[in-house]
């Protein structure tokens, strides 16, 4: 087994898991809403990007358009539907499921079953008898950048502090003058934009079709569930852990066993760590501080 292969495979998996999960994780972690339409949000980002690129817009700009389209859609949906369901989190799952259904079929009606695809930019890295797509390396760098950006946003900015205050204690936050309504809207829009970004980034590597969203769901849900309550740390840790496991098992036994190993890991982690990977980190930190 070529170690570079394994490294690339890991980086690739890490990026895919982190980017699949991050939009879902922000909305879930900050608001408790499980967005079952998450995959379709990603699909909208991919469509926005592909259609713009086909219209002659340069790819980076097309990606920005993809993100914006998804963010605007997130804003509209939050204002009209999601906000009515904040005290009914489980109903919001049904609502987002319905939104996903409408989006998939709506795109199919409006744009047909397929659109011309864009090709992957940036060429190839060759090493020995192997070669690898440069763009995929870029993707893993972007995944890290997204995590870093969110870290700064939620810990170093005024907005981040208000947002975290809103999650921890909405009533107190409101009493202290935080417009919690606006916080929820912003969070939902950020989550949507991140889903759109995932779609935009993967549009040149995947088949952009109305049903494409489902191919992100497994990784997204698994990563969120084992990540635990702290969104950023959780997503990073689960991306790392699952990425390694998937890369190892896929490399040794094939794609199917990679997937199964990842899912079984998720079940074991949930059973052993009721607060997910972040819970484990907190425990360790507390114990070290206690000594």
């Amino acid at each position: 087994m070529n170690p570079l292969n394994l490294l690339f495979l890991f980086a690739d998996n890490f990026a895919f898991i982190v980017l699949s999960a991050v939009g879902l994780a922000v909305i879930f972690g900050m608001m408790g809403v499980i967005n079952l339409g998450h995959g379709e949000f990603i699909m909208i980002g991919a469509y926005g990007t592909t259609l713009s690129a086909n219209a002659g817009v340069p790819l980076p700009l097309a990606m920005v358009i993809g993100v914006l389209v998804t963010a605007v859609m997130g804003f509209v949906l939050e204002r009209t539907i999601i906000r009515r369901l904040y005290d009914r989190l489980l109903d919001s799952m049904v609502a987002t499921w319905a939104i996903g259904l409408i989006l998939t079929q709506g795109v199919r009606i409006a744009l047909g079953n397929s659109i011309p695809q864009i090709s992957t930019p940036l060429g190839t890295i060759a090493y020995g008898e192997f070669s690898y797509s440069t763009y995929r390396v870029v993707l893993s760098v972007v995944a890290l950048a997204v995590l870093a950006g969110l870290y700064v946003l939620f810990t170093r900015t005024e907005f981040g502090i208000r947002a975290r205050a809103t999650i921890q204690d909405p009533d107190t936050a409101r009493a202290l003058g935080v417009d919690t309504d606006r916080m929820y809207t912003s969070t939902f829009v950020i989550g949507s934009a991140l889903a759109g970004l995932t779609g935009a980034l993967y549009a040149p590597t995947l088949t952009v079709v109305p049903g494409m969203g489902s191919s992100f769901l497994v990784e997204a849900f698994v990563a969120v569930v084992i990540g635990g309550p702290s969104v950023l740390l959780g997503t990073t840790l689960s991306g790392g852990l699952l990425g390694v496991i998937d890369a190892l098992f896929t490399n040794l036994y094939g794609t199917f066993f990679g997937q199964i190993a990842m899912l079984l890991t998720a079940i074991v982690v949930i059973r052993l760590l009721s607060n997910g990977l972040t819970g484990l980190v907190e425990d360790v930190r507390n114990r070290m501080e206690g000594e």
């Binding site: 497994v218 569930v225 199917f256 899912l263 079940i267 949930i270 059973r271």
Partner: peptide
Amino acid sequence: FMFYGEVRDVYVTILTLVVSIVMNT
């Protein structure tokens, strides 16, 4: 596994979803 393992609320929901995805895969 879930209830005696202190798996809570919404995590039960996602865990059951993951189990059905495992079965599907």
